[in-house]
Write a protein that binds this DNA or RNA. Sequence first.
RNA 1: GCCGGAGUGGCGGAAUUGGUAGACGCAAGGGACUUAAAAUCCCUCGGGUCUCUGACCUGUACGAGUUCGAGUCUCGUCUCCGGCACCA
Length: 863
Amino acid sequence: MQDKYNPEEIEMKWQKYWAERRLHKTPPTPPLNKGGQGGVEKFYCLEMFPYPSGKIHMGHVRNYAIGDVIARYKRMCGFNVLHPMGWDAFGLPAENAAIKHGVHPAKWTYENIEYMKKQLDRMGLSYDWDREVTTCSPEYYKWNQWFFLKLYEKGLAYKKASFVNWCPSCVTVLANEQVIDGKCWRCDSTVVQKELEQWFFKITHYAEELLQGCDELTGWPERVVAMQKNWIGKSEGVEVDFPINGTDEKLRIYTTRPDTLFGVTYMCIAPGHHLAEKLVGDKSKLEVVKAKYGKMEDKEGLFTGHYATNPLTDEKIPIYVANFVLMEYGTGAIMSVPAHDQRDFEFAEKYGLPIKVVIVSEDRSAVSSQQPAEQLKEAYEEEGVLINSGQFSGLKSADAKREIGKYIEEKGFGKRTLNYKLRDWGISRQRYWGTPIPIIYCDKCGVVPVPEKDLPVILPEDVKFTGKGGSPLLESEPFLRVKCPKCGGAARRETDTMDTFVDSSWYFVAYCLGKNKIAFNSHLKTPSSELNYWMPVDQYIGGIEHAVLHLLYSRFFTKGMRDLGIVNVGEPFKNLLTQGMVCKETWRCPEHDWLFPEEVKDGRCMRCGKEAEKGRVEKMSKSKKNVIDPDALIKKYGADTMRLFSLFAAPPERDLEWSDKGVEGAYRFLSKVWGIVYKYKGQETSIPIAYNLSPIASSLLRKTHQTIRKVTDDIEKDYHFNTAIAAFMELVNEMSSFNAETEEDRAALGFAVKSTLLMLAPFVPHFSEELWEVMGEATGEKSSIFEHQWPAWDEELAKEEEIELVVQVNGKLRAKILVPAGLSDDDAKQRALQEQRVKEMLDGKQIKKVVVVKGKLVNIVIG
RNA sequence: GCCGGAGUGGCGGAAUUGGUAGACGCAAGGGACUUAAAAUCCCUCGGGUCUCUGACCUGUACGAGUUCGAGUCUCGUCUCCGGCACCA
């Protein structure tokens, strides 16, 4: 080899070596002991799998570099590591490519996978490809269908009509997350609410458990847990029945403010409420309100002409239909208390409805009981003391909530209940490139599930992509026409496919089983040994954008799988690391908008010469022209440098600002290490280290042990790779100025180099392998550096002999003195008082107190 | 509005249970080597003042407080970022 660092050559060499030796293969699952534990401790390291969009981007690079360091580190620490990768391969972009370029989604997807897989390997990532998962393959999506059937059996998958986000231009339903500011993410058309029949998964069945489980997620970032809790949105309140005058019907409402029940002056029901049709005479007017459902900006109401009775006051209350009342939350009907709810207040003003004050703040209760309601400028939403509330007047809100709740239950007016914002998961998609929903519609038998033995329902490939909207499956006669499994008569298949979030809700379980080995059985008493051993995921790493959706769905699925006896854990991801975005500065021209950095010269747009404006540092995106192509970067600097920089520039959870100069710095660091190794290679460095070392050698030895301790701590604590790398740099700086003269010196340096290479290995694997070989360590059985143990430090050798004692006077730094470590407090105090600077300051002053912090400082307090 | 998170040099970022603010890197400036450049190596690098080989003052968004001592703890204020947002 040569003494100049040439990344491309060595990276190819070692990638080939790893592949040939199958070094990243998952260790076989050990047989279960009685306690259910295998012999060796396992570690399941998982990164969110990518959508095969065509090429890897910097976000992936960062995500996978982090995961790879953890996986390789854990292997070196002796864990059985599972580190798999796969493809979230169903999705709309493939279908769009088909419409636009005439390529079949399957071809497009598999070609992208092939290319991206090469890119991942080129990064030197240590995946066990034997466990690769591709969600668009029938072997995989068969089990989506199987889960669907299991949920259907349990009543946890069902079909209902509801309002959904509908894009009139794409002619399909959109998930909530695909609606951005009320517009379609794809074509920018305004999304409308449309009533449609859809398949749902009953995630609300697990609402309480999903909420309770949040407290177990101690290894998750707090904000993600907070977002999950927020999304589930539990509230406590009461349901109260208001009899509708002149009918036998009762209008049931839900409220979290039973303390304001005496202030109800009208009621509102959602346009989709089952009583709306009944109560409203003029259907065309109802349609107007319906059309504005979900458009929350302007409140639209319609008086039904009917009244209800407040069971607590016997007051006559008008009933309205209102567009802002949600059908999906609570009972779809509300009581309106304009004095104490801003929305109700605004609605009351618009329609001239009365306002009745029943709560006042504690300190002015006496005065404001007389205050006329007309003087209110806005609702008083705080809690306070009740007035005008019969026998409950004078109670504080908190007490009143409890007492009124009891009273309502005693009198049979209603009951105390819990409510959740979480809604059932609508999984139907009017798209082609997804899992067919295994349902058959028969005119005689109705909705018939596809029998388990007939799975998978294969997605037909021979279809036409018109781009006119609507699923191509609607046009596929062979797919559509089917015999009813029950009666054998002519029947029709469901043409909707599943939301792709279904695919990613259990892929982490599929990895435990391996390629072509995915199979579940709901009749087993205990989970398979693989699933028992590997689940849960010990470390999950991915972007924050999935804080709610994917992570919530996966938690739901895990609970479902647990109840089917497939896994024995209730939570899928023990620890979660949400890595920050990869950002870069942007450039803008007043005329040509976003510019590539190459289009800017001396701060001016090269096309028109106008002054280019340096924009904000933004997330890398094609549209903002601030992306860095990983391929080009690898070509120039190698994968190791790219990995090292992305781990060094910021702690993993924070946003990372890309810096070309910083990349060069990372490359420089590696070249420096390379140079040191080549300078000393061939020299005997493995002789035992003697006790009588020269001062420089003993200092280097100490620094080495300190570095091992620091790096191990940084990785173990919070995966703070940036400070770990800084520690490498410090050690390397000391190594590079080290002049070995004696054999002992060389031994100390050899130890430092070897320790450094072992620690660098998870970060820059090819580089470390190569230098390990150059050092002559790659011999015998353990020819790979990754077959060696992570280095251990010796606490004794890491100890400093001398420390710098800080001397303060009145808390201000006045002197620093070198003292032997382990100096007694008294001696430290004496040494401090003898210091020249201190003597000067003490002149004629009284010493009030002396504070000694062992091994750190002495603070002398004077008057 | 509600819930999170964050404010430290020119920049990215470090700072155990409160104990030397600015590790490490980048940029910048100066020097060495060189015919020259690149690369490499060495030095300086928060701001300010002075009697300038040194010393002092000041400094972690802002204002108070606790403490011998606060980037770190407490209270209040401001700004920025993210999420949710008529959820009754």
